[in-house]
Design a protein around this nucleic acid. Sequence first.
DNA 1: GTAGACTACCGAATATGACCCGAAGTAACA
DNA 2: TGTTACTTCGGGTCATATTCGGTAGTCTAC
Lengths: 202, 202
Amino acid sequence: MPLTRRQHQILDYLNSYTAEHGYAPSFEEIAEHFNYNSLATVHEHLTNIERKGYIKRSYNESRAIEILPSDLVSKAVELPLLGAVAAGMPIEAATSDETVSVPEDFVRRAGNHYVLRVRGQSMIEDSIADGDLVVVHDRPAADNGEMVIAMIDGASATVKRYYRERDGRIRLQPANEQMAPIYVREDQMQVRGIVVGVLRRY
Amino acid sequence: MPLTRRQHQILDYLNSYTAEHGYAPSFEEIAEHFNYNSLATVHEHLTNIERKGYIKRSYNESRAIEILPSDLVSKAVELPLLGAVAAGMPIEAATSDETVSVPEDFVRRAGNHYVLRVRGQSMIEDSIADGDLVVVHDRPAADNGEMVIAMIDGASATVKRYYRERDGRIRLQPANEQMAPIYVREDQMQVRGIVVGVLRRY
DNA sequence: GTAGACTACCGAATATGACCCGAAGTAACA
DNA sequence: TGTTACTTCGGGTCATATTCGGTAGTCTAC
């Protein structure tokens, strides 16, 4: 059920108002925003938008407009920001219950995900800068060449590229020519997940 | 079930009070905070907020307000993917009605946004790689040092950093030492927006 | 071209919830 | 057994949503 131009504009307004205030606008506020002289106009539009399945309303209640997820307003997932990770430095403890909202299509179907803030320049040649957020798919194993969160000796976490060498050792390769790769035995490290996405805000 | 303005304010207060003290406020404290003369008012509000599923209360017990985890499936916005932009190359026409879902907190309150796919290495030193998606805030002007989408001579779009020189010309600075800055007169270029975020998927 | 069907709008009357009060009632707890 | 806190009741006002009866304009099908 496609929306008309006007209906689309109104749905957009509902979205931004709700995002800003935490509650839906009243009919009068909608009318004022679109320069309507009658609330009946608002009512009719909302009725049509509801009939098409984009919002849900409860009868005769104030500001009772619920925006349903759709193509226009798709969902995002709130992933926990577990801390920061830097080359050779331990993961900082999660300061609080902070979360980061990530577009739904960033995460894989199966498995858990979390977010880490990258510290330092160790992956700079893979275009991951200091302060970037990486979306991590929680997995205990990786394939050659994947970017992993690696815990070494159970104490120190880093983000590196993962390579299994012919002699059975693991090479953890930074993307910074000034840094040397780390070689460890398989039992000295654990894969804590692989990086599936990067987010940066200016 | 969305809240009204007042209900939202009260829920906010419950949240901050509980975060600070470790326990919920009494009715009297709520009444005092909102300058109510009757506890009945508090009671009615809490009843409504509970009916809408944001809190849970046990009958007649002191400070027995439990704030339920609002499964705030935080939303994402579907922004149009207008095409690709590379150094010195025109914006490719939008192939279709493709959209990209972006976390809501990526976009500014006001104004329109769109997404472009970056081609080439021109911003590589700012850690924007070939294939990355940039979220652009549609604006006709920029401040010094901001990363802009610049249209030169109405034909060729690039992503560069924007600097206004003392002689009035504009310097469009790539983040790649192998590329030279572009100097243009102000009337030779238009700012089509500033980059507010970067997304990358592996 | 014209008859539906639909979108978009208006103004006024009406209905109901949101919001507030004071006072009396009741459960919990020390 | 009080004291404290929450609950219920009856009463208001105002904000807000709903309904009704209209006017236009724009499509589409016959």
